[in-house]
Design a protein around this nucleic acid. Structure first.
Lengths: 155, 155
DNA sequence: ATACGTGCAAAGTATTTGCAAACGG
DNA sequence: CCGTTTGCAAATACTTTGCACGTAT
């Protein structure tokens, strides 16, 4: 089997293991809801809402409660293995925080709600520079671009 | 009296007039709640939540309902004279959108919630470049930097 | 065995909507 | 006047909390 350095499936698998390890290291047990939410997140390419994760788990036949989904997500965020995103509309979205420190930002269609990730090194460097100039200690940042996706523009 | 080009009070006064004019131009009347919310926003230097605006108006003795505050803010956002911000925590914040197209972003203290505005032309240009490269039509963008303010870091 | 974890239901916030009364032009 | 706007209260949407039962270690 060929091993590719930036293979996506391998990356998310690695993330699931990493997340489970962090949970254990923090002195927590591996309950059903925790395993289920980690697996669900590992299988997605971009951010999901708590409700979407819940719906997917139920569709897969798992008997989880939505409260547990929220509790697990909170735990994973506090352990630093999941990033919580606020793309507007009053709902939080969650995605795996990849170990390498690499991260992306999001384009959001204001019409259909589609979310597309993007990366931009120039943007990151501008943000770092601003952060350094400020008297705040900056730990994190979010960038959201809002507009219309090709499909909605056509319609 | 000396007239300064970038005088703040003059700028916000001008904004209030501009906002009222846009409301009228769109065929809306100048009811009590609309005038009150516009005045309240004009008197603030940075973003406020709907609840904060409501509380301030009540403290000033105006008998407005919070539903009207939300309705007026929605109207002003749709007219493009107010910008809606989502700095996290599930609550929306609002601030005047100054006519010149100039705008700023925000540093948020995750501990005390303090919000500080900042500007960065390099950041803007990086975002424009990314927007142009994407197949979305980008109308707006938000940048939020999260960290600790000097006071909270000291404590 | 025994804490810790979970599901369900109820409570808690932020925001929206229905409606009759008040009001602007 | 007459349709718009408003305040109140009820409804909604997302998230959190209380609690008894289940389960991993």
């Amino acid at each position: 089997m060929i091993r590719r350095t930036h293979d996506h499936a391998a990356g998310t698998e690695a993330w699931a293991e990493h997340a489970a390890a962090q949970v254990a290291a923090a002195g927590h047990r591996a309950g059903g809801a925790r395993t289920a939410v980690i697996e669900s997140l590992a299988g997605q390419t971009c951010c999901r809402s708590a409700q979407e994760i819940f719906d997917q788990l139920r569709a897969d036949g798992r008997r989880v409660g939505i409260a547990s989904v929220y509790r697990v997500l909170d735990l994973l965020v506090s352990l630093g293995v999941v990033q919580r995103l606020d793309l507007g509309g009053g709902i939080s979205r969650y995605e795996p925080a990849l170990p390498g420190g690499e991260h992306h930002h999001h384009l959001v269609c204001v019409e259909c709600g589609e979310v597309r990730p993007f990366e931009d090194p120039r943007l990151e460097s501008a943000i770092e520079q601003t952060a350094a100039r400020s008297d705040f200690t900056v730990d994190a940042h979010d960038v959201v671009l809002r507009g219309h996706c090709p499909d909605c523009r056509a319609a």
